[in-house]
Amino acid sequence: MGLDEKTERVYRVLLYLADAPVNRIAEETGIIRTSVYHMLEHLISLGLVSTYTSRGTKRFVAENPNKIKSHFEQRLILTERIIPELQKEMRKTSSNSEIKTYHGKEAIKSLIEDALDTKERVILSIGSSKELLQFIGGKFGYGHRRRMKNILARSIRLEGDEPVSNPRLNQAKFIDKNTDFPGYILIYDKRVCIILFEKNGLGFVIENQSFSKMAKSIFELIWKNYTP
């Protein structure tokens, strides 16, 4: 329902009673009267409870539970309208360069997942995909979601990695498996993501147009000049 346990209990009791003063609700729920008042005020603000006065006593009435759905639908509509506006403001105020640090394997997964928002629909990578998956604890659906979004992956991998499937969306070249490369690099749009396979995981995202162009040029240089 989106309410805390005690507030939900108050609402359920009032649904059962239909109409009651605060002391009766407190008695039925086992929650102190002052707390029940605060919870009822919150429920009133959500449109789930209404109130009236009869013979000098304030009474509370439970409204239809369908109003819960209406309330959250309205919040969703508001959120969908506000988020794009906030993102525009964030882009206006952000600087041309940004460096973010990620600690921990779950954060590394989040860093990788962010690549699926690429505008160019191409993700370049350097490193062993096999070692990356072993490091973060196995597959987590990234490849499937990338293919569903029709994003091309161009990879410089290490020998021993899985062979490429679906060549329309996967292109790969394999370098010597003995190459000392204890990490993974993702390059897309104006971002360069560096993942280090050490301790619990450390990642960096550098967002800079010039740095990204330089990284893409290095990738293409390796790609064009590599001969197995």
Rank of each mutant, 00 (worst) to 15 (best):
I68T: 12
N23Q: 14
K105E: 04
N200M: 14
F140A: 02
E113N: 11
T79H: 10
N208D: 15
E85S: 03
Y102G: 05
E85A: 11
P167E: 09
K58M: 10
E159P: 02
Y102C: 05
P84S: 08
L196Y: 08
K213M: 11
K67T: 04
R145E: 15
L15I: 04
E85K: 12
A20P: 04
H144I: 13
I194T: 15
L132M: 11
Q74G: 12
Y142I: 09
G104H: 08
F135A: 03
F174M: 10
R9N: 09
G203P: 08
R191I: 05
F135K: 07
E8D: 13
I31H: 05
G138N: 09
L202A: 05
N150P: 00
R81D: 15
R154F: 00
K213C: 01
I194R: 15
L111K: 07
D189I: 02
L132G: 02
V49K: 06
F140L: 03
I108P: 04
F219H: 09
E73M: 14
E106I: 02
N170F: 03
F204C: 03
S129D: 07
I136M: 08
R154Q: 07
V205E: 15
I194G: 06
L221N: 15
S95H: 10
R168V: 09
N66Q: 12
K224H: 14
P84G: 02
E198W: 01
E106C: 00
Y52L: 03
L14R: 04
T101K: 13
A215C: 09
S50M: 04
I82W: 04
F211Y: 12
K149L: 15
E113C: 01
A172F: 02
S129Y: 11
R24K: 15
T51G: 00
L169E: 11
L15E: 12
L133G: 01
L132E: 01
P228M: 02
L40C: 03
Y52K: 11
N23I: 12
G183V: 06
E63F: 00
I136K: 06
G160M: 05
L169C: 09
T57F: 10
L221Q: 12
R81W: 01
Y37C: 00
R33P: 07
R81A: 11
T29I: 11
M148I: 05
I31Y: 06
I175D: 06
I136L: 03
S165R: 10
N208W: 00
Y102S: 11
P163I: 03
I195K: 05
L133K: 10
E162I: 10
N225C: 03
D117A: 14
A18P: 00
A26W: 14
I222L: 14
V36N: 09
L46C: 10
G137P: 09
G104V: 08
